Simulated assay, not measured.
Amino acid sequence: MNITRRRGAIAFFITLGVILVGLAVTQSAWILLNERTVALAVLGFILFSLLIAGVVLNTVFLVREIRRNERQDSFLNAVTHELKTPIASIRLYLETLQRRPLDEAQRQQFYTNMLADSDRLLATVEQVLKAGQLGQRQRQQNRTTIDLGALVAECVAITRQRHHLPDDAIVLEPIPGDVRLRVLGIAEDLRTAVLNLLDNAVKYSPEGVHVRCSLSIAHYTWATLRITDTGIGLPPNQNKRIFRRFYRVPGRTMMRIKGTGLGLFLVRNIVRQHDGEVTASSPGLNKGTTITLKLPLAGTKDSAAAPTPSLEST
């Protein structure tokens, strides 16, 4: 569907360009063939204004297409790297196991490393596949009541294990009042969203991982999850852009950190499909980032009646 819309937009602006050129030629011929009257001057001014507006619109479209193509090229390069690196690593371990006699401790270490590489490979493939699914349609089926606190605790444990982190690297604070936060949704998708947020917090903390997660109730009807890190933070005017598909924050420090540009796009669309919202805030570069995720509590009016926002078509 996205490809069809894109082709339609391109065809529209090509047609617009042809029409504008035709108008320019027609206007020039008319002025040459007729006397300079007030009516002709007014008509010429109107046509010229339309011409300028069309050129501006066409230029904006072309700039957007160029930026989109650049993001897609970056995405393809990132995905290629994310796929090739673990495959090359697994192949190297297998060749070593095949050619050299190793003691049992070394063999077990190799097996552990290959499993970690295969998990990384699987995570990349699943991320790309899920981005395609979410970009095509909304998922409304199989919604159940989910204990958000238990799901976040599970994701914290998975992230610690995946990145070989100590318990104090990612801390989940107790819920005030020791209440259970239940939301209505698809557990698999919400797990993907929370894992992506935690992975980002770890990945963008190159000087040391110190992540704090907190759950609370807002306005009696919303479950709020805040994930705060002490990493490289965000430059100004990037708080909303980071949720776009394929978008990577510009800058040398940012670009050194590998990624596909899909993680936060997935988070935003999953949260929107659950009638929630997600926002990012940062005091500035090297001052950390806080991601706030809000979902309607199960059984509230917001949960039952809130309209599901449409997904980004780009």
Rank of each mutant, 00 (worst) to 15 (best):
K287M: 09
Y111S: 07
T224N: 09
E126N: 13
Q140N: 15
P296W: 10
S89D: 15
V60T: 07
F12E: 12
P166G: 10
D147F: 00
V21G: 12
V63M: 12
F75P: 11
I90T: 14
I175R: 06
R252K: 12
S282K: 01
D167S: 15
L43E: 04
L102P: 01
R7V: 09
L266S: 12
V278G: 01
D275I: 02
V194F: 04
D199T: 14
M114D: 14
M1F: 07
I232C: 10
L148C: 07
G276I: 04
L184C: 06
P176D: 03
T124M: 14
R100A: 04
E82T: 02
G251W: 01
L76A: 15
F110K: 00
Q136D: 14
L62C: 05
T4H: 07
R107I: 14
D167K: 11
N269S: 05
S281R: 07
Y220R: 15
G185F: 04
T192N: 08
L190F: 01
V202T: 05
G177R: 05
T124Y: 06
L293I: 04
L181S: 03
I146E: 10
V267M: 01
L47I: 13
T37R: 05
D119W: 00
E188H: 07
E104N: 05
T289F: 00
P86W: 06
V21E: 09
I270Q: 04
V21R: 07
I217P: 01
D178A: 15
P101V: 08
A280S: 13
I52T: 04
I291T: 13
T292L: 01
R143T: 15
L148R: 05
D117A: 08
F246M: 05
I270R: 05
Y111G: 01
W30E: 08
V194W: 02
E95P: 01
R248C: 06
N237G: 03
R143I: 06
T292Y: 00
P235V: 03
T26L: 15
L122Y: 09
S74A: 13
L32V: 04
K240C: 00
L115P: 00
R248K: 14
D199R: 14
A41E: 08
K287R: 14
I46C: 06
R212L: 11
V202H: 00
R245W: 05
N2Q: 13
G276R: 09
K258C: 03
G261P: 06
